[in-house]
Computed example of a mutant assay.
Amino acid sequence: MNRHKKHHRRRDGVRLSAAVTLCLAASLLLFSRAGGEPLARQAVAALAGNTGFVARAVSLELGLSPSHAEIYTPRTAASARSETAADPQSESTYLPQESPNDAPVLSAADRAATVTINNETSYPVDVEACLSANTTIRAQGDGPQVLLFHTHGSESYTPDAAFPYTPTENERTTDTRYNVVRVGDELQKVLEAHGVQAVHIREIFDSPTYSGSYDRSLAAIEQTLAQYPSIQVVIDLHRDSILTDDGQAYKTACTIDGTPMAQLMFVVGTDDGGLTHPDWRSNLNYITGLQYRLNRTYPGLMRPVNLRTQRFNQHARPGSILVEVGSSGNTMTEALAAIRLFGQVLANDLTGA
């Protein structure tokens, strides 16, 4: 699949100095006054569109230290994942920028108080309004409260010494010791350790045939909800895929309390693609509030919320969540570390702790 042009990292972190920046600006001003105003405007416009230049200028002005965190930008809607795709692709539409190492990063306190929604739909969305709705979901009565499943259960991670295996193309395997089903096992363990009973569907829906995986997982969701009406939250666990044209895999990474781990991302479905999903705004309000609590508890763990035109089976019931747990460049160890923190916050949110 053609994902993006090649990305080249600069390891030495060579950056534009403040003096050079000022000299460049002065040169453009003099050139404009000498009669070259159209060309000067073109040059300024080009610089304004250069994310690396802008990031460096902002860093110099604010005194920020550049970070090695990955920075992601949305791809066009035409590249977005379809629910009816016949080949393995990711729900995510994010790829690293050209020079991610040059971008300034907010402080932990600022990240904790910030919720960003990357809106790929035609609907207007206001984050403040979403948070003001104060939509919460609490555990109700006895029985399972959470349903865990995997529409693309064969999605796996980069092998390492702790989890060695032989993946197929794009890090996939049906061995549940090494794919996202193992991540679901861990999340179930954490939830139940915090007093929240969970049902885990460990079936692989995207193998041997990838096409129709959402139809198969929906049938399993509906059957399980009928069997356990106590379920309040439905979670579809995935693994993202961020690749360059030459096959280089990026990982989403953060370090929390000294432990390196994957980042997580909520993908929120709507009815903008034409499929019935009348409660998507209520679902977005719930997920936005959960994202805020995760940001406050573990700054840096979450990537921005991704609002999409597809519904991803989230019409099945309110409280439906699609979580991207790391990317193909991450290891299982990093994914498990991240899902443990997510599970703690989710359990506390459900129990009101």
Rank of each mutant, 00 (worst) to 15 (best):
D185G: 09
I256A: 02
A18G: 10
D246T: 15
S282Q: 15
G300D: 03
N179C: 09
T333E: 10
D271T: 01
G184T: 03
L29A: 14
R177A: 11
S230W: 00
P124W: 05
F205L: 04
I256N: 03
R138F: 04
G52T: 09
S282Y: 02
T333D: 08
L30Y: 10
D257R: 12
T276P: 05
T73Q: 12
S79C: 11
A57E: 12
E334Y: 02
I321W: 00
A353F: 07
A161Q: 11
Q232L: 01
A86F: 04
C130R: 13
H200Q: 12
Y123K: 12
F312Y: 15
N2V: 07
R182Y: 12
Q89T: 11
V44G: 01
T276L: 12
A40F: 03
A57Q: 10
N283V: 09
A108M: 07
L243F: 14
A26S: 12
P304I: 07
A86T: 14
H7M: 13
G143W: 02
D110I: 10
T176S: 11
L275E: 12
A46Q: 11
Q227S: 14
E61L: 15
A109C: 02
Q188N: 10
G35L: 03
D215Y: 08
Y228L: 02
D246P: 04
C130K: 05
R10W: 07
D272S: 13
S99N: 12
